[in-house]
Design a protein around this nucleic acid. Structure first.
Length: 177
DNA sequence: ACTCGGATTCTC
DNA sequence: AGAATCCGAGTA
């Protein structure tokens, strides 16, 4: 089997709206190719962060050194360090006009955005990685048959945002049925 | 140059 | 409930 699976998601998937991408990523496989091992993890929890008007998003202050990849067309990795301790893994979305990113918060084996980057060895070296061509990380359609529904809730850890944005149900969680 | 605080996790 | 621990962003 080809190591670079033909099931890899292509550019047009990521250039959809951030909400469409976030919802669709639930149940898909996050693939991590290491030195001599390839692992696939089902994505079970994500959050959508939208353009400058979203007062919970890093894009709220416009384009900066840290968030600049959010302003590119979708399909890139956006990683940043939070609390000086944890790397957050995001996937950028949109056509390039409107910044957007989906935070990967949980996998079937790994609960928590900080824990999963630690387990998958994702750090700042992944900033800007192209998911449509990377040799070490990408997303593909999961092959396993799994019955589930998608639950939505407000996003976690954004107490700084005003209620209008804090209350938006832009967190998506896989719930087995 | 200096301050502030965060899309979290672990331990007490 | 508090600590750990870094650096980007805002202010000047």
């Amino acid at each position: 089997m080809n190591i670079d699976s033909t099931d890899r998601l292509e550019k047009q998937f990521y250039t959809q709206s951030v909400l469409a991408v976030a919802r669709s990523l639930i149940g898909m496989s996050l693939v991590r190719q290491g030195q001599d091992d390839l692992k696939k993890y089902i994505i079970t929890e994500v959050e959508a962060y939208n353009g400058p008007e979203d007062q919970a998003s890093h894009a709220r202050m416009g384009k900066t050194k840290r968030n600049q990849v959010m302003f590119e067309p979708g399909g890139f990795v956006y990683v940043y360090l939070i609390y000086g301790l944890h790397w957050m893994l995001n996937i950028t979305t949109g056509k390039g006009q409107e910044p957007g990113a989906v935070l990967i918060r949980g996998l079937d084996e790994v609960k928590g955005p900080g824990r999963l980057t630690k387990q998958l060895l994702v750090d700042r070296s992944f900033y800007g990685e192209d998911l449509t061509s990377s040799k070490r990380i990408w997303v593909e359609q999961a092959k396993v048959d799994r019955k589930y529904k998608i639950q939505t809730t407000p996003r976690i850890g954004i107490e700084y945002a005003d209620p209008f944005w804090k209350l938006k149900e832009w967190r998506f969680v896989l719930v087995d049925t």
